[in-house]
Computed example of a mutant assay.
Amino acid sequence: MRRVPASPKVSSWPSDTFVARLPTEARRTLLDLGTVRTYPAGHTLIRQGEPGSVVFVIVHGLVKVIASTEHGTESLLAVRVRGDVIGDMAVLDGSARSATVTTCGVTSARLLKGEVFLGYLRRHPSAALALSVLMGDRLRWANQRRLESTGYGSDVRLARLLLAVAARHGNRVPEGVDLGVPLTQVELGDLICAKESTVHKALRDLAERGLVLRVGHRRVVISDLPGLMAFADMDPLSPNNPPPKAY
């Protein structure tokens, strides 16, 4: 690990992340706390089952949240990007870590001791409120994936997942909207409760319909946003289905 000197500018924080939700003063205070460190790809920041005493605020890169069953089966639960906070749940309630968090590439994060983070929340009610809203968003995301697993086929579940990821992390590219997060077919399957072979077939079908482009091993581009939303049975006018901001 090595120290890095600075954090990204305020304007670079992705919307809907913890840092982006903070008022200016609370944001500046948070980004002055703790120490910024950089970690290599594949580094484990948090390990499931261990006690939680620190919180990480990602300032560059992205991480994956993975949970394991008692039998050793692993599932990808979420992806977190710059501006997101991780490790907060265990610090707030004193429980053990509920998942393992690993870096997907070189990642920088601001490391705060648990008591420092709790003190920050007490001094800044607006930050505590932002964290509460963020936790509600996480719960809605998880509930939505569970509902879709029983209410839709795997192809529609995949389409809805691609739209959800793009809405949060997507980047405009000449071909359409890049998801903004490198995910393998196995990881996409984890997020929609499907086998890799099922995801492979669903991606091939979506590509044949002209709705997505498969670019490389870990990259998917939405080439027809309205068409994919229609396929996913999502009303583009509904406030519950915001289109990717980058589109």
Results as ranks from 00 to 15, higher is better:
residue 165 V to E: 08
residue 158 L to C: 11
residue 27 R to W: 03
residue 230 A to R: 15
residue 208 E to S: 12
residue 206 L to R: 08
residue 151 G to T: 15
residue 201 K to Q: 11
residue 6 A to S: 12
residue 26 A to R: 06
residue 228 L to S: 02
residue 171 N to Y: 01
residue 180 G to S: 07
residue 191 L to C: 04
residue 114 G to C: 02
residue 107 T to M: 05
residue 245 K to N: 02
residue 50 E to R: 11
residue 22 L to N: 06
residue 202 A to M: 10
residue 143 N to H: 13
residue 17 T to S: 13
residue 241 N to D: 08
residue 238 S to N: 15
residue 2 R to H: 14
residue 111 L to R: 07
residue 172 R to F: 07
residue 69 T to F: 09
residue 114 G to S: 05
residue 164 A to M: 08
residue 51 P to Y: 01
residue 2 R to P: 01
residue 200 H to S: 14
residue 184 T to M: 08
residue 90 A to N: 00
residue 195 K to S: 13
residue 191 L to I: 03
residue 210 G to N: 14
residue 145 R to F: 11
residue 19 V to I: 01
residue 71 H to A: 11
residue 160 R to D: 09
residue 57 V to L: 13
residue 157 R to S: 08
residue 226 P to A: 11
residue 93 D to G: 00
residue 213 L to C: 10
residue 233 D to A: 15
residue 29 T to M: 09
residue 241 N to P: 02
residue 161 L to T: 12
residue 128 A to N: 11
residue 36 V to I: 03
residue 175 E to P: 03
residue 105 G to K: 10
residue 97 R to N: 10
residue 26 A to F: 07
residue 222 I to E: 09
residue 61 G to I: 00
residue 183 L to V: 03
residue 116 V to I: 13
residue 46 I to D: 03
residue 139 L to M: 15
residue 90 A to L: 01
residue 151 G to E: 15
residue 7 S to E: 07
residue 168 R to M: 04
residue 25 E to V: 14
residue 8 P to E: 06
residue 213 L to P: 02
residue 74 E to W: 02
residue 156 V to A: 11
residue 159 A to D: 11
residue 30 L to T: 00
residue 166 A to R: 14
residue 119 G to S: 12
residue 139 L to H: 14
residue 236 P to M: 14
residue 59 V to E: 01
residue 10 V to H: 12
residue 113 K to A: 12
residue 28 R to H: 10
residue 71 H to T: 09
residue 90 A to V: 04
residue 53 S to H: 04
residue 210 G to R: 15
residue 228 L to R: 10
residue 98 S to H: 07
residue 40 P to C: 05
residue 226 P to Q: 13
residue 134 L to A: 09
residue 190 D to K: 04
residue 110 R to D: 03
residue 159 A to Q: 14
residue 125 P to S: 10
residue 95 S to M: 04
residue 144 Q to I: 08
residue 100 T to A: 01
residue 85 V to Q: 00
residue 64 K to T: 15
residue 21 R to D: 02
residue 194 A to K: 15
residue 190 D to Y: 03
residue 37 R to D: 03
residue 33 L to V: 02
residue 195 K to F: 11
